[in-house]
């Protein structure tokens, strides 16, 4: 308890620094996605005789992925409200739903990738598909690591209950999750929707 009291005094300043550090990470990660988006924007028409986005993408599937991820971003937010109120049950429920939605999203994405590769449209088919797989795959990897992080943090919440550290971790996790949602919105728009209008 004494340790907790001690940390409590420095908490606001420390919390601000951690938040800012994590924010810097998010922004640099965003720059990496930016470069991948720029590459995709430049190469999307270079299909080398292979299929184009219009031939491959399923509009309803992309919409389903988007709605799932948007909802998961919302439930992560509700989980954070619970965390701030110190409501363990609310945290586990909402973040549990977020985790399930994230898993559903990832399953659809992997199913899509598997279909493409099964039909012989791989990373090596064309510049378009290389940039597609790298952009969407990088986002998928982020989702995967987010899910791992969420599973570990929730396991700690179950085991130790909510404490300052876990609330902070959940806060960063939810930031990360909202961030991935923003990146996906642009993937949905630039990759999936634009394939049908350009």
């Amino acid at each position: 308890m004494e340790v907790a009291e001690h940390e409590e005094r420095h908490e606001p300043e420390y919390k601000d620094r951690v938040m800012f550090g994590f924010w810097v990470y998010l922004m640099t990660d965003l720059l990496m996605f930016t470069v991948l988006f720029a590459v995709y924007a430049v190469l999307h028409a270079n299909t080398a005789g292979g299929p184009s986005g219009r031939d491959l993408f399923s509009q309803p599937m992309a919409l389903a992925e988007t709605l799932i991820l948007l909802t998961s971003s919302f439930t992560a937010g509700l989980g954070m409200v619970g965390a701030r109120l110190g409501n363990k049950k609310q945290v586990l429920t909402w973040f549990g739903i977020t985790f399930a939605l994230g898993l559903a999203f990832l399953s659809i994405e992997l199913y899509e990738f598997r279909e493409f590769i099964h039909e012989g449209h791989t990373l090596a088919t064309s510049a378009f598909l290389s940039s597609f797989f790298v952009l969407v795959g990088t986002h998928g990897l982020h989702i995967t690591s987010g899910l791992l992080w969420m599973a570990i943090t929730l396991a700690f919440v179950v085991k130790r209950g909510l404490n300052v550290h876990l609330v902070r971790k959940l806060n960063l996790l939810s930031l990360f999750w909202h961030f991935l949602d923003i990146v996906w919105i642009f993937i949905f728009t630039v990759v999936y929707l634009m394939a049908f209008i350009l």
Partner: peptide, 20 residues
Amino acid sequence: MSNAKHNTTPKAEHGATPSY
């Protein structure tokens, strides 16, 4: 758990449910 409640600031700094 009351500890967590005490340390975190559920007031103006962060949005509550309606904002979400």
